[in-house]
């Protein structure tokens, strides 16, 4: 790093920079920490930023975890997330690779057509009518397919493929590999960061998706976790997720926040492993020079 003899003003500068970063850290973390604390809140206590560990109550988690509805929703979320990532990544890679080949006839036209859908969206109801006409209402396919390809992710991946050294592909082609083999054996192994990053984008989008399930699915038993969370937070059908007749041992706030924690948790477990690829993966594709 650029470290030389520090003048007093430079030292002040460094201090204020670090102070600012710590401030950002605090502002980011305090709300999340507080959510965690409230989720441990026992009855009759006021929530506070630092709940004594001997006061922690896991009742709210117990209430939620022992509900079959929650588990069903979690399973639905898992299916939608994993299935969604598989479908989306496959479609995106298969579309991005040909479009990254500058010599492909009609490439500009196709990119233009795809870009247009990014800029101009037909809206909710026209899309709903399509899903209905395809007979996909009330099936997972409606949610999985409708948002399968994100134009942004597609373009990022295309730019990434373009940035790969062409010499490797050339070499493979001289050895007699066809386009599929080049993609599979040369391009994809080099694309780990972008695949992980875009995969995370798709995964998170699917995991967080609550709007399309509400719109397309009518069976309660198909609903994923975010819908459950929204219902719990807005007090819509709370009875559905916690036993109404059993003596309720956790305050409502704790239940709500425990639900928030439970739903965020799986993502928090995956995120750090993929986060380090962000800068590598995203930046290459984000701006076209």
């Amino acid at each position: 790093m650029r470290k030389r003899s520090l003048s007093p003003s430079d030292r002040l500068f460094e201090w204020s920079i670090d102070l600012f970063l710590v401030g950002v850290l605090v502002v980011t973390l305090v709300p999340m920490w507080y959510v965690l604390m409230v989720s441990f809140l026992p009855f009759g206590k006021s929530p506070s930023l630092f709940l004594a560990p001997w006061d922690w109550s896991f009742e709210a988690y117990a209430q939620l975890i022992f509900q079959p509805t929650i588990w069903r929703a979690a399973l639905n979320s898992l299916v939608l997330t994993l299935g969604g990532v598989a479908i989306s990544l496959t479609l995106t890679v298969m579309a991005a690779y040909p479009l990254s080949r500058r010599e492909l006839p009609g490439r500009g036209l196709i990119v233009g057509l795809i870009l247009f859908t990014f800029l101009f969206n037909a809206g909710l109801i026209p899309t709903f009518l399509v899903v209905k006409d395809l007979g996909l209402l009330n099936t997972y396919w409606s949610v999985l397919l409708n948002g399968a390809v994100s134009v942004y992710n597609l373009l990022v991946m295309k730019t990434f493929f373009q940035s790969l050294p062409e010499s490797l592909e050339e070499a493979a082609r001289i050895d007699g590999a066809n386009d599929w083999q080049v993609l599979w054996h040369v391009v994809l192994p080099l694309s780990r960061p972008i695949l992980l990053t875009i995969g995370l984008f798709y995964g998170v989008a699917n995991w967080n998706n609550f709007f399309e399930p509400i719109l397309f699915l009518s069976d309660r038993s198909l609903m994923p976790l975010p819908v459950v969370l929204r219902d719990i937070l807005t007090g819509l059908n709370v009875a559905e997720y916690v036993e109404g007749t059993a003596a309720q041992a956790a305050p409502a706030e704790a239940l709500k926040m425990a639900a928030v924690v439970l739903i965020t948790l799986p993502m928090l477990l995956v995120y750090p492993w993929i986060q380090r690829y962000f800068t590598k993966g995203v930046l290459i594709g984000s701006v076209k020079e």
């Binding site: 709903f128 209905k132 059908n237």
Partner: peptide
């Protein structure tokens, strides 16, 4: 089974539109 509240109304409305 329709969800109670506005979600259920919306669902029926959507089915009607379709």
């Amino acid at each position: 089974m329709l969800p109670t509240g506005a979600d259920g109304d919306n669902r029926l409305g959507a089915l009607a539109a379709a």
